[in-house]
Design a protein around this nucleic acid. Structure first.
Lengths: 253, 253
DNA sequence: GGGTGGGCTATAGCATACAGTCGGCGAGAT
DNA sequence: ATCTCGCCGACTGTATGCTATAGCCCACCC
């Protein structure tokens, strides 16, 4: 200890774990003085969450700390911390003395997530209609046209992104950060469950969006909330429908 | 340390924990429901959360890992993991390279938590009325009388506990685990904010409970939801009222 | 042949060690 | 006297080491 200047060998502990830096997209060559360290655990969290969402890690799969650490080029410590956080947010189950397993979604859970989301999103729309500023409404309309464009282009990826952006903006307009936090949590998991079965509802959904924006713009909070409720409710129905279709398809094949 | 399980075992490759296994295993069929070691991090989490709730740790206070670890007789590792979880649940802020600080509640945040709670609790009451079984309704009435008893005894502690138990049971009756999880999260923080300012509303609140239970028992979901909404809304109002009173008192003193 | 217990291996949980960074404080310069 | 710069202590972030446990395999017993 206290070997600050004198004995610090310059050769020790330098180029390591750079691969992760690249993985989380750090194209900068020059550094800014204000640049925060950005803890490794954050990067690890992002990577693992990503792998879970796009099914690189299957539900039920055992996540071995050593493997992940080796794979990512870091020690077990940041991996553990990332797993903790993933656990808190419902992505993985942590069985004492056994470790982390990718959470296995159940149909019941998906349904509860979807209906809870309906509740929260409807409230956010209601509040948004109450508090909307002209700039925010303008922004909403922009996002709507982005979605329309994606629809014309028939670009699923862009459509999903536009949809998320629009909903996120409504949530932000509600001004309720607690609500926003809960929606963010629920929403990500919804997307995870939902993704293998269905994509956006397309035309129909964006027509509903247009109407919703109209209500928000005119400050009709009651109808805005109601519309959003129905809107997300339909998404829920389409989830069940497509899941059923999927089963039938499975049975047929 | 070493006050947990007997940790002074010689690292011998042969003399493994035979004796302990036999002692714990006992004959057959006796136990082993799910006896798990219960990770240290859990215990640490509970202790720290408790300290935050009852103001042993003041808002804004810097939580130094070493101090906590020494105080609790464990290493920094479990402490760090507990802090992670506390961060995810909004109890502490984690500033990179600076460490953990007890979250400083703002009035805006308290209000948003209270109104979000209103939304969630109302929904849980609505669902509870829809799905209630006779046994659950019976249990509700029991809890109500426990509350009435506490009211007669003028026991604040018992009253708070009874109130929490009743609400928790309604939530459980809703059958929606996602909703329950969100409410649990929001509710604990509400209690934290609320506790220094106000206690339960007493008589009034329990009259409202009685009516609510009536609606749940008769399966009137619409009115049950509405009642719960008003019920928690009044709690919110009383929060603002008492906070204002407190300010005036502060100014006067 | 089937059940049972011992031992082995892999892995989580916890502890310790090390390195980098932040903020403060004081000595020296202006 | 005030400002600046470099040193220092403290603490976090990361890595590594150690130990106990869970689950499995196989040998052994019935």
């Amino acid at each position: 200890m206290t070997d600050r200047r004198g004995t610090t060998s310059p050769a020790g502990a330098n180029g390591r774990r750079r691969s992760l830096g690249a993985a989380r997209g750090e194209p900068r060559a020059a550094r800014q003085p204000l640049e925060r360290p950005a803890p490794l655990r954050e990067a690890v969290y992002d990577v693992i969450a990503e792998m879970i969402i796009n099914r690189e890690l299957q539900p039920g799969e055992h996540l071995v700390e050593n493997e992940l650490a080796a794979h990512l080029g870091v020690s077990r410590q940041p991996v553990r911390e990332a797993l903790q956080r993933l656990h808190n947010e419902g992505w993985v189950d942590l069985r004492p003395a056994l470790g982390a397993f990718v959470h296995v979604p159940t149909e019941e859970e998906a349904d509860q997530l979807l209906s809870t989301r309906t509740l929260l999103e409807a409230e956010s729309a209601r509040l948004a209609a109450k508090l909307a500023t002209p700039e925010q409404i303008e922004r909403l309309k922009e996002l709507q046209s982005v979605g329309e464009q994606a629809l014309s282009d028939d670009s699923q990826v862009a459509l999903v992104a536009a949809n998320a952006a629009l909903h996120a903006h409504v949530v932000e307009m509600s001004g309720n950060k607690v609500l926003a936090q809960l929606i963010a949590m629920v929403d990500r998991r919804v997307r995870w469950y939902y993704s293998p079965i269905a994509r956006t509802r397309g035309r129909e959904a964006w027509d509903e969006h247009a109407l919703l924006i109209e209500m928000i713009a005119t400050g009709n909070s009651r109808r805005a909330g109601e519309l959003m409720r129905r809107h997300t409710e339909r998404t829920r129905e389409s989830y069940h429908q497509r899941r059923k279709d999927g089963e039938e398809q499975d049975a047929a094949s």
